[in-house]
Design a protein around this nucleic acid. Structure first.
Lengths: 197, 197
DNA sequence: CTTGATGATCTAGCAACGCTAGAATATGGA
DNA sequence: TCCATATTCTAGCGTTGCTAGATCATCAAG
């Protein structure tokens, strides 16, 4: 009797459709357009059904954010693995990070700007978030001893560059210069402590 | 016949009260609590009066943000001027920036996080915003040639550190280490190009 | 002083929001 | 066939930003 299983699958699939629809609307029209009524319309169920899946609207945004962390982790890992040499890896990860943020502004917004209860750097941190952090740490590690601190600061620089550029507070034209600055700050200007990998 | 002038003064004073009230509510209870009805209540006028001063709610938030930029400019200037030596000035400005952001989260949110039409790095940039940028540039200038690029990157790092720590994504305990890292990245680890001031 | 126009202010209400109580419907075992 | 359970829906509450149209105060002209 796979009845319960079938119901469970259908339920899981519906939940996935909610998240996918929310993400699609947000990326096309912004998060303001993602209303419970609109989502209910698009998945062809009434509004209360959404609340049997998620506690409230924020929980839906958070679910999209978690998807975003999976995606960015994959993007950063690819950027690192396709690079030759640790310095190039560092640089390509920076480029990949900014490309991700600029290319999917709504997704990035869900991950970092909108009020969320997702926590980092704590015991209950979700694995998706830890994985993203680890992907950043991987390319930083060859250049330092205190990996955690450097990764956090590195990440802060990337996030700051993203937000300030996205809100028009720093000059887009100077992006490459700023990136070079960050890379040099971590990898050093000359050949680093040990020779190139 | 100062009638028109008196009316103008009263109007300006009422506008100031709106902004001050919005800021006060936001800092005490968060921006969600800043509703048009609430503001109308507190200034003892009806709601449409607010719309004779500001186009919409966002414009009120923006007005508070501009006040915030004046405040942070003052804080950064003080931190710099009270420091002995350019490296200490840089370090104290970093501390002042983070103290400002952490001490007035709602104000900082209005300045950087909430959707605003305030622009930077453009012709129509408001003087308050330029002044804040200049205050950061002042302490960076002794350590580099391309002041604009370094200031933008410096600012991005500060903003990133602020946001990631405020949203619980990096460890508060490691703040001092991260700050040291940023300061060293700009000022250099040993004595900088020229001797200390 | 009265009148009429102008501008300032208010009352009342619209449409949309997140969310939920309670009715209606479908499901599956006795 | 009947009932209990679980699922889904209808309808609506309270709140939001914002606005049309009524009301009121002000002041120059007659």
């Amino acid at each position: 009797m796979g009845i319960t299983e079938r119901k469970g699958r259908e339920r899981a699939e519906r939940e996935h459709r909610i998240v996918a629809t929310a993400r699609a609307i947000a990326e096309r029209e912004g998060w303001d357009a993602v209303t419970i009524r609109r989502l209910a319309d698009e998945i062809e169920y009434s509004q209360p059904v959404l609340y049997s899946h998620f506690e409230n609207r924020d929980a839906i945004v958070a679910a999209v954010a978690v998807e975003g962390f999976k995606d960015i982790t994959a993007a950063l890992r690819t950027a690192a693995s396709e690079s030759i040499g640790r310095r190039k890896a560092l640089e390509n990860v920076v480029l990949a990070y900014l490309a991700f943020a600029m290319g999917r502004p709504a997704l990035y917004e869900a991950m970092f700007v909108l009020p969320t209860k997702l926590r980092f750097a704590e015991a209950d941190t979700r694995p998706e978030l830890q994985a993203a952090f680890a992907a950043l740490a991987a390319v930083v590690k060859p250049f330092c001893t205190d990996v955690a601190v450097v990764t956090e600061t590195f990440w802060a620089a990337l996030h700051g560059l993203t937000e300030l550029e996205r809100s028009g507070r720093i000059r887009p034209a100077a992006r490459a210069d700023r990136i070079a600055l960050v890379v040099r700050a971590i990898a050093g200007s000359g050949s680093s402590a040990r020779a190139r990998g």
